[in-house]
Write a protein that binds this DNA or RNA. Sequence first.
DNA 1: CAGTATCCCCAGAGATACTG
DNA 2: CAGTATCTCTGGGGATACTG
Lengths: 115, 115
Amino acid sequence: MKTFFCELEVTLEVIGGKWKGLVLYYLIKGPKRTGELKRLVHNISQKMLIQTLRELETDGLIRRKMYNQVPPKVEYSTTELGQSLEPILSSLCDWGGNYAEQSFAPGEIEILYLD
Amino acid sequence: MKTFFCELEVTLEVIGGKWKGLVLYYLIKGPKRTGELKRLVHNISQKMLIQTLRELETDGLIRRKMYNQVPPKVEYSTTELGQSLEPILSSLCDWGGNYAEQSFAPGEIEILYLD
DNA sequence: CAGTATCCCCAGAGATACTG
DNA sequence: CAGTATCTCTGGGGATACTG
């Protein structure tokens, strides 16, 4: 039996870590192919991308749709459960935007949007 | 100059990682002494607790108040900036609670509340 | 009690090459 | 294009001992 010491720990178990939040962030905006995600989630390696996707899929947050064709095509999308994180991730973004304005002088920080 | 590729990355830079969210979670409920935090944030080591507190302080999310007495007494509390994460952490908890109900059979998981 | 200083380890993550 | 398989390695993090 798995033991947690508050609900936040449960959440962090599912979307914590270095990449899960970011992958979800882009998938929540709409279905993406593997290559697109690789481009969007900057600096993620092939290995970590696939690994992250597998874990999110196992935990029921995303869905993997495979097209039987050559060359292969795979599309990832959020489940309802995954999509239910949209308001939270949205808030986290807003907070980060504010923080960037408040706590950095112009020129100390830049944000490059990829999508 | 630090470069980010979306606002979420900024947020994760500040409250990402293994412990920051949990430490904030408890501090948002009210000021705490070092020892209390050590007890509440289950399994955190002395080293990681102090390190986490220092980083949160540096980033302006918490405040450290030291009482000049023997034995030493130190109290940590949130700044306004830190407190502004309250609704988000709250949402993350709710989400985790729901997830625990939906995705685990009774007996597969337990949540022990420490405060 | 709060905090520092070390030593040490291993899982998470990077890099590269390969396959269907 | 999507994914697997290895190999490697770093630094996040754990354990312990010590100080004011």
